[in-house]
C-alpha cells in the first residue's frame, strides 16, 4: 500500500531523513515513533507530496508521489501536525469544501460528511465557526478533514496532541477501528499509544530507522534486564557480596551509604524475579530491607537504549 525506498531529505547541511526503507501493508496501522526532531513530520510531508525528497521514492497504492501526484493524492488523507483549517468557515462548510477539493461525488458528500462528523463527535458543533472551537475540537475537525473521501491511506501526525484524556482514549479507539479498512501511518511520542493502536512500530532517531518491530517484541527486547533500587541496613561490602551471590543478579552498584544504611542498584535478567531470593539471603544474615523500588523503563530510557544499541535491537 505504501512503499518507501531509500528516502533521504536534506535541508541544506541538515539531513532530516536519512535513507528510510519500509513498506506498509493494506489495512495495517504503523506507528512512527521518535524523539523531537527525529524526522517524523518531514517523512510524512514527503509521503503526502507536500515536500520533495532529496533522494528515494514513495509509492502510494502503486502510484509514485512525484510522477503521478494526482493519482497518489486521491488515495491519501493527511492530518498534519497543525490541523489545516479555514477558520472563517463553519465546520460543515469547511468539510464541504474539502469534499469538493477531494472530488467526492456531490450526492455522496452529504451523507459522508454526516457520518464522519458523527464518528469524530463534532456533529453538535457543525454550525460553529472553526475559529471559535477549542484546540481539541479543531484537532477533531482536522481528523474529519483527513477522512473525507474515505482515502485508502491515512497519514496522521500526532493525532492525539491537544486532546483531554477522555478524548485521547476515544480518538485512539477510533483510529484503531479505522485500521483494516484504511492503511494508517501514525506518528507519536507516546509509547502506550503505539502499543494500544499499532501492530507494527518504526522507531526513528536522527532521521534513521532504529528499529522496526511489533510493540510487544520491542518492549521485550528492550527490557533484557530488570532494575531495582534497594535500601539495606548493614555494612556495605558485606551486603554487596551477599547480593551478588543471589542467583540471577547480574550487577550490583552502591549508590549511597550513610549511618550503616546503603542504597544499591541491582540489575537482573528480565525472566528472573530476584526479589524473593534477595529477601531470603538477606534475612538469613539479619540485614533488614528498608526499601525496594523497581525501575520502570521510560520512553527516554528506550530511546537512549535504542540509539546506543541500535544494531543489537535490529
Amino acid at each position: 500500500m505504501i512503499e518507501i525506498q531509500n528516502l533521504t531529505k536534506k535541508f541544506g547541511q541538515i539531513t532530516a531523513v536519512d535513507n528510510l526503507n519500509f513498506t506498509v501493508e493494506k489495512g495495517e496501522i504503523l506507528g512512527f515513533l521518535g524523539p523531537n526532531g527525529a524526522g517524523k513530520t518531514t517523512t510524512m510531508n514527503i509521503i503526502t507530496g507536500y515536500l520533495s525528497s532529496t533522494e528515494g521514492t514513495v509509492k502510494v497504492c502503486g502510484h509514485d508521489i512525484v510522477e503521478e501526484p494526482l493519482e497518489a493524492k486521491r488515495h491519501l488523507g493527511y492530518l498534519p501536525e497543525h490541523p489545516p483549517l479555514y477558520t472563517d468557515m463553519t465546520v460543515r462548510e469547511f468539510l464541504y469544501f474539502v469534499s469538493e477539493l477531494k472530488k467526492v461525488n456531490r450526492r455522496q458528500a452529504r451523507g459522508q460528511i454526516r457520518d464522519i462528523m458523527e464518528l469524530v463527535g463534532i456533529t453538535h458543533v457543525s454550525n460553529r465557526l472553526v475559529n471559535n472551537l477549542s484546540k481539541g475540537y479543531k484537532q477533531r475537525v482536522g481528523l474529519a478533514q483527513a477522512l473525507i473521501g474515505s482515502p485508502d491511506v491515512l497519514i496522521l501526525d500526532e493525532p492525539t496532541v491537544g486532546l483531554d484524556p477522555i478524548q485521547i482514549i476515544e480518538i485512539r479507539k477510533l483510529i484503531k477501528a479505522l485500521g483494516g479498512e484504511h492503511t494508517i501511518i501514525l506518528s507519536t511520542h507516546i509509547l502506550p499509544e503505539v502499543s494500544f493502536i499499532c501492530k507494527r512500530v518504526v522507531i526513528i532517531n536522527k532521521g534513521r530507522i532504529a528499529a522496526i518491530d511489533t510493540p510487544e517484541n520491542l518492549s521485550q527486547n528492550l527490557r533484557n534486564f530488570t532494575k531495582f533500587t534497594i535500601k539495606i541496613e548493614g555494612p556495605d561490602s558485606e551486603v554487596a557480596k551477599l547480593l551478588k551471590s543471589v542467583d540471577g543478579v547480574q550487577y550490583v552498584e552502591l549508590a549511597g551509604y550513610q549511618d550503616n544504611v546503603g542504597s544499591y542498584v541491582i540489575e537482573s535478567s528480565k525472566d528472573v524475579d530476584v526479589r524473593r531470593p534477595v529477601f531470603h539471603q538477606l534475612s538469613k544474615h539479619s540485614y533488614p530491607i528498608l526499601e525496594l523500588r523497581s525501575y520502570d523503563m521510560s520512553l527516554e530510557d528506550i530511546f537512549l537504549q535504542i540509539t546506543t544499541e541500535e544494531k543489537e535491537v535490529v
Binding site: 510531508n45 507536500y50 491519501l76 477539493l101 477531494k102
Partner: peptide, 8 residues
Amino acid sequence: KLLLTSPV
C-alpha cells in the same frame, strides 16, 4: 498543506 496534498 491541505491544498497541496489534495488531488488538485
